[in-house]
Design a protein around this nucleic acid. Structure first.
Lengths: 345, 345
DNA sequence: AGATTCTTGATTTACGTACATCAAAAAATC
DNA sequence: GATTTTTTGATGTACGTAAATCAAGAATCT
């Protein structure tokens, strides 16, 4: 059997109360005694039974998720995953509040974070926008001892505890490398469609894509980036114009959301096959397009993994515990039509 | 606050003892009373506090892992992950025993499973070999009410509860599809190196690879499969012979382990660049080879994920609980040199 | 009706930890 | 050496559930 507080007390030759004082670093213990207890803990290899401790504390974790509004499937999926986590609240001892804010609006996001702060949660997860007022808002949360995890899009320069998302520079590089190899004999330029340069993840993907393209397909012409604000309608219009303006378009990289528009535009123009298209996020639309060949490759981040990871990290930080690094690293998933998971995503 | 057994007792107008009888379906409750209690459970939305229940039961999960011996890095990594899980035993209330058996030896595996049965564990995880005696051994475990999860290599036709591993047909297809696209202008045949056709995962990968190659590179000649038994030395010898015998070799797909040998052979022969090489499992060697360009792509299954998933599923099955399907699906990871995770794997 | 079985209630102990209180002992201060 | 302060011990309650015991009540059978 694993040792309990009683065993430590016996081993150290002190009372249960003293062990408790040491374990929960309460005042009123001499240094010598504290050492004795800590030595006993070490020799017996005691680890606190977290379940019992939480039970005794009747611990619960009030958390706030700050998510962007918007019409794209990825963010709706993310919201659905948060909702699913909320349904597990009873089991996981969490109490999740969701705040929705307009997309790509730094001021609104900062205000929402301020509101989250007044709710006094144990932790906050936020899809960040890279702006000074957002950094300030996050830092204020941290000063109040509230754990903060950035979700999907990071906020470097802030004091957030953790980033639950993929390495977007690597994602962009991967897209570029695949594009370079997949283009094969095709001549002509490659277009890039972004959501907004305001968010860090899109800027990072762009940087990575350009770097990898320069290596794997040197000399290939890249058209200027266009911004579709993750909105299907806007993206469709932009891509329609691109394929008309560039009859010899060889490839297109969509690094943001709103790919319904991309797919529709390519199919309406009958350019599914001769344009090599690489996009992000597995949705019902992009899945279908990958199967049919309109899309050639898809990079994905699993929203469910990100949400669950964010919650694990927030709970751990709230308790001042370490996390299993490997388990919390979110992988970039690459899908071809050959490795699509069976059920709808 | 979430409702407790006391609340149910009050709501149903029965005693605590009766609620307990219903919850743990103990005998001695009339149908009418049982219904009353179940209605109270439903209306209050009661969910049993698993932590408290485990505490009260002082539940622990004795588990047995049956792993193959052998010199390849993947299996050693798998063993290390099991060891890591064992270190977390105290927290996770598991007691893990590891049994090692000679690789590719069905009789030895069946004997080990029989031995595992005598240990009377709550669950068994096994890297399966596709043979009748192994199926029989697994079925015997299940008859004893022991949960069984196959790990890495599945055992269809047996009554195992779950397979903690990747879809290997899809993995093979993915390799074939990438190979087809990556070959580009290269002429010449493609070689296939397997570990052993005795294990299901290798057979599945081969099937998928052939199918996808037929689609993405029709007419391309595939050399007969050679078996390296996942042994680096044996694989090196086989591949060295292949590159000598086939001066125009365009590609090579290694669907098993022992890739140290593959890499060494290609590099010794100076054929790193002109042969497109795709292999499985991220190890220090394959990582280096991918960075340097000796390998063009790498498919990976995360051993850590598989072990943790196996444990979660075994615990859940032992308690007769359902599992979150999406969380237990092991993804096929595709690595190019651009999306290698930073730390050594 | 009386004996027998089945169903229910009441109560207690246990799991491992957290936390509070009060008394006793030890150490530090004057 | 007496007093104050600090440190330690002893003890009890709580968290939510499991599991056992014993007694009392209700239903069934003869």
């Amino acid at each position: 059997m694993r040792p309990t507080v009683h065993d430590i007390a016996a081993e150290a030759g002190v009372s249960l109360a003293t062990v408790d004082r040491v374990l929960n670093n309460r005042p009123g213990v001499r240094g010598v005694t504290r050492d004795k207890v800590e030595r006993a803990i070490a020799t017996l290899g005691y680890v606190r039974d977290v379940a019992a401790a939480n039970l005794a504390k009747s611990r619960s974790y009030p958390l706030v998720f700050v998510l962007p509004e918007g019409d794209n499937t990825f963010m709706r999926g993310l919201a659905a995953e948060v909702e699913a986590a909320r349904a597990r609240s009873a089991v996981e001892r969490t109490a999740i509040t969701v705040l929705s804010v307009p997309a790509f609006d730094a001021a609104a996001l900062a205000a929402a974070l301020e509101k989250a702060r007044t709710l006094g949660p144990a932790g906050v997860a936020v899809v960040a926008i890279d702006a000074p007022e957002v950094v300030a808002a996050v830092d204020r949360l941290r000063e109040d001892g509230i754990a903060v995890v950035t979700l999907v899009s990071d906020l470097p320069g802030s004091s957030r505890d953790h980033f639950a998302g993929v390495d977007n520079i690597a994602a962009g590089r991967t897209a570029g490398s695949l594009m370079g190899r997949f283009l094969g004999g095709r001549e002509g330029p490659v277009a890039i469609v972004a959501g907004s340069m305001l968010v860090r993840d899109h800027r990072d993907r762009l940087e990575g894509f350009r770097a990898a393209m320069a290596e794997s397909a040197p000399g290939r012409r890249l058209l200027p980036v266009v911004e579709g604000h993750d909105d299907p309608a806007e993206v469709e219009q932009l891509v329609s114009k691109l394929v008309v303006d560039h009859a010899d378009l060889a490839g297109i990289y969509s690094l943001g959301a709103g790919n319904r528009g991309l797919i529709t535009a390519l199919e309406k123009a009958g350019r599914q096959t001769d344009v090599c298209a690489i996009a992000h996020e597995l949705t019902p639309h992009s899945r279908r397009a990958l199967s049919s060949g309109t899309l050639d490759a898809l990079l994905n981040q699993d929203a469910g993994h990100e949400v669950r990871s964010a919650i694990r990290v927030l709970k751990a930080r709230a308790d001042g515990l370490a996390v299993i690094g490997a388990q919390e690293r979110i992988r970039i998933e690459i899908f071809l039509k050959d490795n699509l998971p069976v059920e709808p995503a």
